[in-house]
Design a protein around this nucleic acid. Structure first.
Lengths: 112, 112
DNA sequence: TGCGTATATGCGTAATCACTTAAATATGAA
DNA sequence: TTCATATTTAAGTGATTACGCATATACGCA
């Protein structure tokens, strides 16, 4: 029994905005993109994303707090993985929208 | 001929992040939600969203630059409208994901 | 031309946040 | 215990930005 579309409360808007804000950083998007290939440790992620270990750890914490990635500790290492499958569709949707806008813009400036 | 899924370049990630950042403000989300009902003037939007005229005008400019809303001038008034239909699916997707997380959390604390 | 209205913009302020460096914590091995 | 490794956290800095207030611009009308 999914709720029908109704105006969101101010509190709900804040939550949604927060979700978008988490995705509004290139470094976090890059980490998610690396994680698309599967679970990885913090060190591996830092190297793959070309970031400092401290900074990557912080971004991973942000992603985990938002419920987008999961955290699994194994000995000295901590492994992160995609926890919210909607991320795939979300990125696909946004990329598709941007592609469409670019194509529309290209059409305007196309030679006659 | 849609491109297959391949790692996005750093520049592309910046563009995608920017798109998310535009959606990462409660006031802008509220404006979009009001616009879901149809085209409206700046003044009408300011009243419906309970914001100052200056601030709403600024947010609308941000949304327009991102290609999310369209601008139509008619006499003294300027009318804005949803320009990117993917916004509907995007909000639906995010809200659904948040709902799912909330239900999962509720389940954890459910009485036995 | 001058006046009133609708919208946009310039400026200052406060808050948020990403990033770096350095230090702290946690785990496993010797 | 002591040491080394992997990760997290603390503190400081610079950049971005939302908001309020005041002013500027654009348009219609008399």
């Amino acid at each position: 029994m999914a709720k029908k579309k109704s105006p969101l409360s101010d509190e709900a808007l804040v939550v949604v905005a927060r979700r978008f804000a988490v995705l509004a950083e290139p470094m976090r998007l890059r980490l998610l993109q690396v994680l698309f290939a599967g679970e990885k440790s913090v060190g591996a992620l830092a190297e793959a994303a070309a970031g400092t270990q401290a900074n990557v750890s912080r971004h991973l914490q942000t992603l985990a707090e938002a419920g987008l990635v999961s955290r699994r500790k194994e000995g000295l290492q901590v492994f992160y993985a995609i926890a919210d499958p909607s991320i795939f569709q979300l990125c696909e949707l946004v990329c598709g929208s941007i592609d469409q806008q670019n194509q529309a813009r290209a059409k305007v400036f196309a030679k006659p």
